[in-house]
Design a protein around this nucleic acid. Structure first.
Lengths: 157, 157
DNA sequence: AGTCTAGAGACAACCTAGTTGCCAATCCAA
DNA sequence: TTGGATTGGCAACTAGGTTGTCTCTAGACT
């Protein structure tokens, strides 16, 4: 059956939302409330070396202020901590806490579990083929999400 | 190669964004500026019989006020027009204008063109297989988008 | 030294797409 | 006729982002 291009777009969006919503719900159950993929992404980026607000902003492709807000949230939750840089007093050096690393590990687990569930349903081969097809299309991993409320609103009502 | 669940999610999101961004850009070039998928969806729903703000809200799964704002935008642009209902003066009956129908047609064309481009790149068979796999996963077509700014921010900086 | 430029982070104001709470007008049924 | 339910609109709020402007500091150049 020849599907329409619009349906294809909605299938992709639906697939992503299914994963993201399930992951958010599962993370909440494991004690990480109100965590959205963007937070995981930010922590990962900080851990990889983006240890100031400005650097994080550049790497995530958002404004410094947006990055600062995200950092504020992450510090409040204890995933990230910031100390004054002794060598440059303009900077506040960011480090990922143990709690932050725990969140990253849990996040990976949750997503891998979800992927495994999909593999069970349609077969590993088919799933890998799907991933291969998307990769072959040159889909870039999005570096930022731009989606306030995108993951917060639970799909069940 | 065994990919991670997180990569799978990002591939799906990336795929959707690639289509949505390209479609928005193409629609803008064809004279429909600032149109996002949600507008297309709303017009379609009105056309299918959701002829009041409250009904549209219910069908899109958003609040009445959110629906009213969308309708305001669509009326301003001339895609939809509203007249007082002679039989129930609480209601404002919505109708899709010719301009609205034209937008729907153009939108379909644009998405179908994009899908055809994908088919060229990875082959029709592979693309249909991808769609089949997502369908088999029971992906529900999302009825609302929840993504303010999602499509507005052009990816090309 | 002194000055000049550039970067870091913070503040205020604004935008957009939603939300809830409330309210007047209207319809309809008991 | 009266009371419950529905319509649409208003106000205030939230979340996540934006731009513009500001101060402080670092480093480079004279």
């Amino acid at each position: 059956m020849a599907r329409s291009g619009a349906d294809l777009a909605l299938l992709l969006l639906g697939g992503f939302r299914a994963l993201a919503d399930a992951a958010s719900a599962e993370l909440a159950e494991r004690g990480h409330e109100k965590i959205r993929p963007v937070h995981d992404f930010a922590i990962r980026t900080i851990d990889a070396g983006a240890d100031t607000a400005s650097e994080l902003a550049r790497q995530l492709g958002v404004s410094k202020q947006a990055a600062a807000k995200t950092i504020g949230f992450l510090e409040e939750r204890g995933y990230v901590s910031g100390q004054a840089d002794p060598r440059d007093s303009r900077r506040r050096l960011l480090t990922v806490t143990d709690e932050g690393h725990a969140l990253l590990r849990t996040g990976e687990e949750v997503f891998d579990d979800l992927r495994a569930q999909w593999a069970e349903r349609i077969g590993v081969t088919e799933l890998e083929r799907l991933e291969e097809a998307l990769s072959d299309l040159g889909i870039r991993i999005p570096t930022h999400f731009d989606a306030p409320g995108y993951f917060t609103n639970s799909p069940t009502e």
